[in-house]
Design a protein around this nucleic acid. Structure first.
Lengths: 220, 220
DNA sequence: ACCTGAACACCGTTCAAGT
DNA sequence: ACCTGAACACCGTTCAAGT
């Protein structure tokens, strides 16, 4: 008997960087960072682990490439904004939302300094900072403050959702558990943390994120 | 023949959390994040991998505990500062330097949201923000902006030194290599990144870091 | 109570051998 | 040129067995 075309949704194409990256993203989204293994990837692509190495150098590169695919999409979608400030806000929020949806992108960005995905963000922000008329000798400091803030908050946010998923909780319950820990800290040593514990589960991270961006933009 | 007391610097004490954490820090400092394994740790402590599990629950906890030891020390050392602003600058710089000396602390902080090491920093900044007279309803946003910025920059900085070490380069050479990549980007798509490439290897990260802190503080 | 060390169930990566 | 899949050198973690 000849093999029927029992394609399960997808045609039988040969392996390629794109197909590998696409499958990696699916795996990362569904099973998190630890879900991306060459064996799981090989099974999903109906091949052996060795085949993947023909198209990709190592796991680090694979993760950076998957991260770049998400960031590239995000940058294309967040082109809106009439003024430079609005454009910066739009990029920042785009990244925030992308990392919220794909937590693994947060740590991938942190572990690939100076690489393509980070450069895409850097460039976009840099062009807007220039458009705002920031003098040349202050552009670097401004852009790097913004970039670091964006990557920092998004990374922390991703860590939260990732930890929550790891423990099988939703975000609210996870933050609630931390708030509970905080409220039981020593009142003498940790007065501030205790006092804001209640705000942790209810406050809007996204709103505070934009507030921080504005804080930096206004400081110029 | 009876065993002589061939102690190599350290008395033969029984295993304990402190000794394990101390050995972990030494291992992390000398061989990086990938150098911390239960087998290497067991060898350094002259015991078996299983023994460590009697004192520590798992590797994640071990890393957080090692991170906390460094942060606790750092917080004690950076108590200086006459005004609240100066105090915040002092803590920020203390953390920056600590993470520069122990790059693994950067990613450990990122992966332990809401845990003790982060809370130590949060508390210190929170108390100073209060002392500055920031109104209660804006304290959270202010503190979280500062905290995220500090963790973000320090994390990126740690990633740089870590990547440099991984490739056997010093920091300057590593940044030089990235600058070289940047200067070869498409001039139409990446004008800004190209234009600042030259500044990457020579600019002072520490200085820009404080500049960013001031930017946020001034925005209040 | 605390330690030992073999064993389990994984990893990323390589490489001879196939087509 | 591209793929296969066994093999290598590791991991974190567990657990019966010892003291």
């Amino acid at each position: 008997m000849a093999k029927k075309s029992l394609s399960s949704g997808r045609r039988e194409e040969s392996l390629s960087q794109e197909r590998i990256i696409e499958a990696s993203i699916e795996l990362l989204d569904s099973s998190g960072e630890s879900g991306l293994t060459f064996r799981a990837l090989a099974e999903r692509l109906a091949t052996g682990p060795g085949a993947i190495y023909w198209h990709i150098d190592n796991k680090t590169d694979l993760l950076t490439a998957a991260c770049d695919a998400i960031i590239a999409r995000t940058m294309q979608e967040s082109r809106s904004g009439d003024t430079a400030k609005q454009s910066i806000r739009a990029v920042a929020l785009g990244i925030f939302d992308a990392i919220d949806a794909h937590p693994w992108v947060g740590s991938a960005l942190t572990h690939a300094p100076g690489q393509l995905p980070v450069v895409r963000i850097l460039e976009r922000i840099g062009q807007q900072v220039r458009a705002m008329g920031v003098p040349a000798d202050k552009q670097w400091a401004t852009v790097s403050a913004l970039l670091n803030y964006i990557l920092g908050v998004s990374g922390q946010n991703a860590a939260n959702t990732h930890m929550a998923r790891t423990r099988g909780l939703d975000r609210a319950n996870f933050l609630g558990a931390i708030a509970n820990d905080w409220s039981q800290l020593d009142p003498v040593e940790y007065p501030f943390t205790r006092s804001i514990a209640g705000q942790l589960p209810i406050h809007d991270d996204r709103l505070d994120f934009v507030a921080g961006i504005d804080l930096i933009l206004d400081g110029l």
